[in-house]
C-alpha cells in the first residue's frame, strides 16, 4: 500500500494548486500582485532531496507534462523545467548537508529559478510583455512569499510521506 501514497500526494497537490488559484486569486487581484502556488514543485524538490534523484526527475517529467497538457496548453515548458531543476537540485545537495532547513531554502530558491525561467520562456513566445523589473515586483516576490509559507506548512507532511514510502535509488 505504501507505493500509492507518493503519486496520490503529488496528484492531490496538483489539484490543490488549481483550487488555490480558483479560490484566492480574488484577494490578490485588487493589488494586481500575482501569487503563484508551486506546491507540486516543492514536493518534487523534496522528493529529490529526501527520496532519490531518479524518482524526482521521473515525477517532474510526468507531472510537469500533465501540468502542461491540462493547465497551460503550451507543451514541454513545465515538463522540462521540473525535471531539469530536479537534476540541478540533486547536484546542489551534494555540496550541502541535507536537513530540513537546507531543503526548505533550496526549494524556495528553486521556485525562484523556475519562475524566472518560465517568465523568460513566456516572453520568448510573446505571451507577456512586462519588463523584468515589473515581473520581479508583481510576480516574483509575492510568489516567493506564498511558497515560503507553503514550505513551512507542507515540509513535514511531505517528508513524512516520502519517508514512509521508502524511495530507493
Amino acid at each position: 500500500m505504501s507505493r500509492v501514497w507518493l503519486p496520490l500526494t503529488a496528484l492531490f497537490l496538483f489539484l490543490a494548486e488549481s483550487s488555490y488559484a480558483d479560490l484566492f486569486s480574488g484577494e490578490h487581484f485588487h493589488s494586481s500582485r500575482i501569487f503563484v502556488p508551486h506546491f507540486l514543485f516543492i514536493f518534487i524538490v523534496f522528493l529529490t532531496i529526501f527520496g532519490s534523484t531518479k524518482s524526482g526527475i521521473i515525477y517532474g517529467l510526468v507531472f510537469g507534462f500533465l501540468f502542461d497538457v491540462v493547465y497551460t496548453e503550451i507543451l514541454g515548458i513545465y515538463a522540462f523545467l521540473f525535471a531539469f531543476l530536479a537534476l540541478v537540485v540533486s547536484r546542489v545537495m551534494k555540496m550541502v548537508h541535507s536537513n530540513m532547513l537546507s531543503a526548505a531554502l533550496v526549494s524556495i530558491l528553486a521556485v525562484a529559478v523556475l519562475e524566472i525561467l518560465v517568465y523568460e520562456a513566456n516572453s520568448l513566445i510573446h505571451f507577456t510583455d512586462i519588463s523584468f523589473n515589473e515581473f520581479a515586483s508583481l510576480r516574483l516576490l509575492p510568489t516567493l512569499l506564498l511558497n515560503a509559507a507553503a514550505v513551512i506548512i507542507l515540509a513535514f507532511p511531505i517528508k513524512f510521506v516520502i519517508d514512509r514510502s521508502k524511495v530507493v535509488d
Binding site: S18, A21, D22, V36, H38, F67, Y71, I74, V118
Partner: peptide, 9 residues
C-alpha cells in the same frame, strides 16, 4: 472545475 495556477495564461 479548475483554474490554471501559473497565471501567465
Amino acid at each position: 472545475i479548475a483554474r490554471n495556477p501559473d497565471m501567465w495564461h
